[in-house]
Design a protein around this nucleic acid. Structure first.
Lengths: 145, 145
DNA sequence: CTGTATCCTTAGGGATACTG
DNA sequence: CAGTATCCCTAAGGATACAG
């Protein structure tokens, strides 16, 4: 199969081909839930991504329009990575993944409060997550890289 | 990394490790949306899964409690595969994948009506999908394998 | 520090023959 | 027909050195 050629026109297959490797969604997770925006920050994730893989995935995510990068003005040797709307629209999918995993696997790092909140008003939670991605309020809580 | 050993306790990572290959979710898709229940039926999917891969994935899905199999009484040389509740609980995740893909990729095989229905009452659609999985009404519409 | 390139190993997967 | 086993090849990914 050539790249850029889908195996089928099935929407699930499409998502799988673009997101269904072991790293891509973890980067998106970091952008959404961890507020990470810099190369080095992604490198520090628990799962331990290699530099070449990270570099490759960031490039692909940008090519697919899920992420945009720009020079970080306060530190012009660095780039800042941010989700596009296409990327933010993956929040519901990730939320469903969290719900499913939390339901069926003990000992994962998910707070009961978060699950309870989702159960009572999922839409509101998703909206709230989306709203505070990349805002100053949010960034202010993060250590500078 | 040894198998059976998660890279992290992140719920998204968990889902990824169990579902994040190029075939597993397609089998689950066939069980949910195509009403497929027999080995041969999965083999006929558009993406063209190989027999060894299918065999391997069915075994893993059963080991994980996402699928159960039993002898098909009407034809005792065959087994019938069905989703457990753990498997049916993946419907929302698949639905979100469909929504996302349909929004950002033209030409996929998704009806506008389906998307419209989802937009107006997602929960109801999910309930309806779950309700008719494996029912006789549903199976009756299928050709026997 | 942000990447990129290289080297090397392994796991995933396709084709296909085969067994019950 | 259901499922397994084998062979083989490629792509994914880890380690690490290197460049801007």
């Amino acid at each position: 199969m050539k790249k850029d050629e889908l195996r089928s026109d099935c929407p699930i297959n499409y998502a799988l081909e673009y997101l269904g490797d072991k790293w891509t969604l973890l980067i998106i997770r970091d952008l959404i839930f961890e507020g990470k925006q810099f190369y080095k920050e992604f490198l520090t994730s628990k799962e331990g991504i290699a530099t070449n893989i990270l570099s490759d995935r960031l490039k692909k995510l940008e090519a697919q329009g899920i992420v945009v990068s720009q020079v970080y003005e306060k530190q012009r040797t660095q780039k800042i990575y941010q989700l596009t709307q296409k990327g933010r629209d993956l929040i519901p999918l990730l939320v469903e993944a969290i719900i499913w995993s939390a339901k069926y696997k003990q000992g994962l790092n998910v707070s009961d409060e978060f699950i309870a909140k989702l159960a009572s008003d999922k839409e509101q939670v998703i909206t709230a997550i989306e709203a505070h991605i990349g805002t100053d309020t949010f960034s202010a809580n993060r250590a500078q890289p």
